[in-house]
Structures are given as structure tokens and as C-alpha cells.
Amino acid sequence: MTVVPAPVVVQYLYLHAPGDDFTYPSARAGSDAGRLAARYLECVAVQAASLRFSGVDCELMLVLNLEDPRAVLDEHGIALLGVIEELGVRRVTAPYDHAPDPDVTMFYSSRYVFDAILATAPADEPDRQLWLVDVDCVWRDPGRAFATLGAEGDALACVTIGYPPDWDVSGSTRASIGTLPGSTEPVPPWIGGELLAGRAGALRGLVATCEDLDAELAAAGVRLPTEEQLLTAAGALDRARFVDRSDLAGRIWTGPRHQAANPEDPASLALWHLPSEKGLSFRRAAAALVRRRAGALRRDLGETDRALKRFNITGATSTRLRNDAWLMTQKLRTLLPTRHRGTTHGR
């Protein structure tokens, strides 16, 4: 009887040093490297909890660029690392060898996914199933996701984003990438970076393909600083095979001011990518995990309607008001004299 190894879910996070120049608009962390790290580690912890609470067999990994991340973390960040370890997430260290040019500040760390692939996709297990996911994701039905991957052979599962042809995304558009010599279509699908899943061998092949393509484009004077741009170009030039799994995963912008074309039925998805929730519902859920009071979070993740409300996806007016009130409480605590407030794990 052949034993099929459990799928591997890989989160990855590049930790900036104090003084680095960076811009991550949805992180709600400003220019503070320590606060930014904590904001993303909150997401790591919540995503790991969503997998562990599901009871589905899988291996969890977190790729970091620092062997000892405590050097850039505050007390809250260190507490989050402890929670992540307790959830059975194995830490892996990998340098950022695929970084964009140093003058790039917007989403500077996006290409770190390529280093995460090489650090976790076993060369001697080319058929091992890997899921590379952004940290600000919540798993609703990982069992269904894991069971439905693999029929596409070496094609890699992704989420395509329906940007208008001329919508500027970090300096590129679908139409501009469609004008690259060799493009197979004038307006190629935009490959989102929140999900890359498939066989380990195919993922390693994707990295090699993107390295070669990046060098060719640079020689021609074309800069594509983010992973989404490079992946979209690889698909447009028929250098890589992707399959859109928007039936399994989706990028969902919450709040009243976004102009995104969200999935029509988030409740039907197995994986939610929630970029605008980093400073809200992820933060509240992570605070509960740090305080070892995760009973309500476990219950909410176990029921679709409750999960939709907790993460501000639908029916969330009262939840958002509660989130806003909680955030205001955290701000007020930071203004109180230290001797009156003690340690705050959710700030």
C-alpha cells in the first residue's frame, strides 16, 4: 500500500530591518519594521490555527529570512512566535535571493515566494503537494482543497484577478504584459500571488523559469518588480502552465471603500485571502490566540456563517463596530502610563 505524504502548507515572511524603506498599504503598520513584522505574524498564527482547528492532516511551514527573528521583534512579536510554534508550524530559514532592485519599496518582499519554494519543495520528492499561500489567508475547507488538487499534472493552481486591461498594478497592466514579444494573447489573465499550489517538481521548475525570464526582460530594459507581474508574464509567454482555481480560493476585499470585484459566493470557497483584514479581524483573532482564549475563534471557524461575520466578509456591521471599538481600546491603552496598563498582547 502506497502512503501518500500529507500536503505541505507554506507561509513565508520577509522581515525588514529597522530603517528599511518599504510600503505595504494594507498592513496598517506605517514605516515601523517591528510593527509590520507583528502584523504579519498575527496573520501567520491565525492561518495556522484555521488549519489545525480543521483537523485535516497537513504539514505547516513558515519561511523566514532570519534564523533568529527575535532580534527584530517586540514582546508581542515574540509571543506570536510562541503561538505559531505551539500550533506545530516548522520554521525554515531562507535568504532573499530573488529580491527586486533596491530602489523598489512597494511590496518589496513579494518575490520572496520564489525563495520559499526552493527552501520547502523537496527536490527528492517531486510529487509532494505544496501550497504556497500569503499569510493573510484563512482556510475554511482545507480537506476539499487538498483533495481536488493534482488532476492538472504539472500545471500550478492559482487565483486569477479580473483587473481591467489597463488597470495599473505596480507599474504594469494586463495589456502592457500582453505586448511582450511572444505573448500568446493581448490581455493575459493576471496571476495573483496569494496562492501557488501543485507538485514540488513543478514549483521548482517555475522558479527556474521565472529566473530566466527575469534576466531576459532585464536585458531588454523591462522591469517587473513583483511576483504577480513576473508570474503573469510567464503565463502570457507560455513559459509556465497555470490553472485558475477561483472555485477554491479568492481574494476578498472587505470594508465599504474598496472597488474590487470580489468572488460572488465567498461561502463556497475553501480559502479566503483577506488583505484588508490584517489590522482588524486577524489582529483580534491573534490576540485571542496569544491569551490562550481561542474557544470562540475555534467555534467561529467551524461554522461558515460565523466565520463570514468574524472576518467581516458578510453581515459584518456589528462585527466591524466591535472590531473598531476593540482597536480604540488598544490605542487608549498605549496612551495610559505603563504602571496602569501592564502588558498588552493585542496592540
Rank of each mutant, 00 (worst) to 15 (best):
A29Q: 09
G30K: 10
S31N: 13
D32W: 02
D32K: 03
A33H: 06
G34W: 03
L36W: 11
L36F: 14
L36R: 12
A37M: 08
Y40D: 05
L41E: 02
L41V: 05
L41A: 04
L41C: 06
C43R: 00
C43T: 09
A45I: 05
A45C: 08
Q47I: 02
A48G: 05
A48P: 01
A49D: 03
S50Q: 05
S54G: 08
G55A: 07
G55N: 09
D57S: 13
D57V: 08
C58S: 13
C58K: 01
E59A: 11
L60G: 01
L60S: 06
L60K: 12
M61A: 07
M61Q: 14
L62F: 06
L62D: 00
L64D: 03
N65A: 02
N65T: 06
N65G: 01
N65W: 02
E67R: 13
P69W: 03
R70L: 00
A71T: 11
V72Q: 11
L73C: 07
L73F: 05
E75Y: 02
H76Y: 00
G77F: 07
I78A: 13
I78P: 01
L80R: 02
L81N: 04
L81S: 05
G82F: 01
I84C: 02
E85K: 09
E85Q: 06
E85P: 00
E85I: 00
E86A: 14
E86D: 14
E86G: 14
E86H: 09
L87V: 06
L87T: 06
V89P: 04
R90T: 15
R90I: 11
R90S: 14
R91G: 03
V92T: 14
T93A: 15
T93F: 10
A94H: 08
D97G: 15
A99W: 08
D101I: 10
D101E: 15
D101M: 14
P102E: 15
D103C: 11
D103V: 14
D103F: 11
V104Y: 07
V104W: 04
T105K: 15
T105N: 12
T105M: 13
M106V: 15
M106L: 15
F107I: 10
F107A: 15
S109C: 11
S109L: 04
S110W: 11
S110K: 10
S110G: 12
R111P: 07
Y112H: 11
Y112S: 08
V113M: 14
F114I: 08
F114W: 15
F114T: 07
D115G: 14
I117M: 14
A119V: 09
A119H: 09
A119I: 05
T120L: 08
T120F: 06
P122N: 11
D124Y: 09
E125K: 13
E125W: 04
P126F: 04
P126D: 05
D127A: 14
